[in-house]
Amino acid sequence: MLLDASASGLFPIAPTPFTPDGKIDEGSLDTLIARYLAAGATGVTVLGIMGEAPKLEPEESLAITARFIAGFGRLPVIVGVSAPGLAAMRWLARAAIDKGAAGVMIAPPPALRTDDQITGYYRQAIEAIGADIPFVIQDYPLTLTVQMTPKVIRQIVEENPSCVMLKHEDWPGLEKISALRAFQKEGSMRPISILTGNGGLFLDFEMERGADGAMTGYAFPEMLGEVVKLQKAGERDKAHDLFDAHLPLMRYEQQQGVGLAVRKYVMMKRGFIASDAQRKPGSALSATARAEVDYLLSRLARHDPRAAI
């Protein structure tokens, strides 16, 4: 099943589990898949920035992709294929689709600065991978340093019919969601799915601005999925109450440089993965930082029993 503009709900960004010696932990891949499905995932994204994709060999990337496709069955698997060169992007995109992936995610390279450079890059990327592959725009200026205005995103969408989704990670970015939905309402942009990232840090209001769901890797994916469902059901206060309880831990996880270490540590404690190891070069939490996370978990457990680890 190929990805289309109707995609919604919870698409966790999967970390890549490693053993302490840097090998891919295949057992934890299976556990991770099972836990995501139990959390109510409606799809999944692999080989994203937090998936340590640049540290993987091409064959490893494809093997991880195939394992998630098999584990998720008929649910869509999106594969991050961003690469410095279009040849590598094409290889992984075509190989992933051949394995059964639903679509691919493409981030702009950091060197792009002007609107023409950004739109031109996406034209070239789609020419390289093929217009038959549905793709997701990854808009993440905090890390990628590429600023995409709503008009630029609209142009990419209108010029490339295979664009079906935006992964929205601008910060602040609520007005951008509103602008894109206004384009759609006035008929100047066709409908696309908008899923949001940034560790879920703004999911509460992003849903109210017109997002269709979450595509991020916060260590409690169940909460993300529940906030999405509550907002869609009009249960605004319940959604914010649940979200607010998790906000201190989400904030801690969003620290630049150690965010993945925090996420993997919590996921290890929750039994999603066996080890919080990162493939080198990578960061690790100090004893003080681990104690701080443990404290935040103990406070969260007063409101959400899933944090009682």
Rank of each mutant, 00 (worst) to 15 (best):
L285D: 04
V77S: 14
D132T: 00
L297Y: 02
G103A: 15
I153E: 03
D170H: 02
R90P: 04
G257W: 10
M1I: 14
M207H: 04
L10E: 03
E159I: 00
G103H: 13
A128K: 05
L3S: 06
G271K: 01
A93E: 04
E52D: 11
L3A: 07
M148N: 10
I69G: 05
S61L: 04
E186C: 00
H246L: 13
Q124K: 11
G51F: 07
K151C: 14
L224N: 01
L260Q: 05
A214K: 01
Q254C: 11
G173F: 06
L144I: 00
G282Q: 06
A179Q: 03
P161D: 13
A233Y: 05
A131L: 10
A274V: 01
L249C: 14
K238R: 12
L29R: 04
Y295M: 15
A211L: 00
G71P: 01
D212C: 10
P20D: 10
K269S: 05
M89Q: 15
A182W: 04
I153F: 07
M268K: 05
G80R: 08
S298E: 09
I137N: 02
T114W: 15
T149G: 14
E253M: 14
A307P: 03
G197T: 08
F183S: 08
T65P: 03
W171M: 07
V46W: 04
E226W: 00
I24H: 04
G73Q: 11
W91Q: 14
I78V: 14
D116N: 14
E186N: 02
S82L: 13
L32R: 12
Q184T: 10
I64G: 03
S162R: 02
Y295E: 13
K269Y: 01
L296S: 01
T145R: 10
E57T: 09
P58V: 11
R263G: 07
P54C: 09
E158T: 06
M1A: 15
L112S: 12
K269T: 03
R299I: 07
D115E: 15
V104I: 12
M105L: 13
